[in-house]
Amino acid sequence: MHVFSTAEARRGLGALLGVIGLQGALGCNTITGVDALSFDPCATGFSDLTVTEEHGSDGGSAFHDACPEGEVLVGLRGGVNGLVLSGISGICGAVRLSETSPVEITVTPGEAMPTVRGVMSSEEAESRLCPPNEMVVGFGGSTFLYDSNNPRPIFWRVSLVCAPLVVESLSGAPSLSLGETTSTPSLGGADDKGDTFDPIYCPENQVARAIQGRSGLLVDALGLGCAELSLVCPWAPTASEE
């Protein structure tokens, strides 16, 4: 039962939460004497995808692999052909909102996408995952001219830039921001080889939900599809109610 259905009531709840904390609104009611009340939790949503620039060459064929609904990119699985990155697939994770105070956004990694871009030609493919509860916000690495007779470079190695999403406020209109970034170890060839390029990032306050680029037998180009995560809370006023 949703007992806070009007703008006035939601504003009142927002003020109340500022005094008693957020546990009641997230399903953990600790207020003596109001056990009959029930609260709707916040819901997560994503904006439409925006794409970063792609780094690499125009070899191979274009691809775009998006995470399932409600999930974000948290890693890559890749194979190595000799010393060069030969194939990749994205690893996604489900986004969850904690039901305790302080509120935290958590991510549960899943399996790698079934579609491989390039070839998983190594005897044992390797994975690179963001730290717990962080998600991909960019990538770096280097390219390499694999064949002197072919002027198109391919990916030598790739590393992921990760960050957590931090809840800034829930007492009024909720807001999110990116926390401190970290980088994963490289996937592919040695760090001191190839032509290193500057990291490519998602737009401000957006996180990756897709990989895209070009591939044939190897990985020719790579980019990201990004979106902004938002929280919709039942006590927060909408634009029409403010």
Rank of each mutant, 00 (worst) to 15 (best):
M1C: 11
V3C: 14
T6Y: 05
A9F: 00
G14A: 09
L16E: 03
L17R: 08
G18P: 01
G18A: 14
V19S: 09
L22C: 14
Q23M: 10
Q23L: 10
C28A: 15
N29Q: 13
T30P: 03
T30K: 12
I31L: 15
I31S: 09
A36R: 13
L37C: 05
S38W: 10
F39M: 09
D40N: 13
A43G: 14
T44R: 10
L49C: 00
V51A: 15
T52Q: 03
E53R: 15
E53T: 15
E54Y: 04
H55P: 00
H55N: 11
G56F: 06
G59N: 02
G60I: 04
G60R: 03
V72P: 01
G75N: 09
L76M: 10
R77G: 05
G79D: 06
G79T: 03
G82H: 07
L83T: 12
V84M: 11
G87W: 01
S89G: 05
V95W: 05
L97H: 04
T100Y: 04
T100V: 14
V103L: 15
E111I: 09
T115H: 09
G118V: 02
V119M: 12
V119C: 13
M120Q: 12
S121R: 02
E123P: 09
E124Y: 06
E124D: 13
E124K: 13
E126I: 10
S127R: 10
R128L: 14
L129E: 01
C130L: 05
P132Q: 10
F139G: 01
G140T: 06
T143F: 06
L145S: 05
Y146M: 12
D147Q: 05
S148L: 15
N149F: 12
P151W: 08
R152Y: 14
I154S: 03
R157V: 08
V158L: 10
L160S: 03
C162R: 03
A163G: 05
E168S: 14
S169W: 03
S169A: 14
S169V: 09
L170F: 06
S171W: 07
S171K: 08
A173G: 11
P174I: 00
S175G: 13
L176H: 06
L178D: 01
G179D: 01
G179N: 02
E180I: 08
S183W: 05
P185N: 05
S186E: 11
L187P: 03
G188T: 00
A190E: 11
D191G: 04
D191W: 08
D192R: 03
D192Y: 08
T196R: 11
D198L: 13
Y201K: 09
C202N: 07
N205C: 02
N205V: 09
N205W: 01
V207I: 12
A208T: 02
I211K: 07
S215C: 04
V219Y: 01
D220S: 12
A221G: 07
G223P: 04
G225C: 04
C226W: 00
A227F: 00
L229W: 01
S230L: 11
P234L: 06
P234N: 05
P234E: 04
W235R: 02
A236F: 04
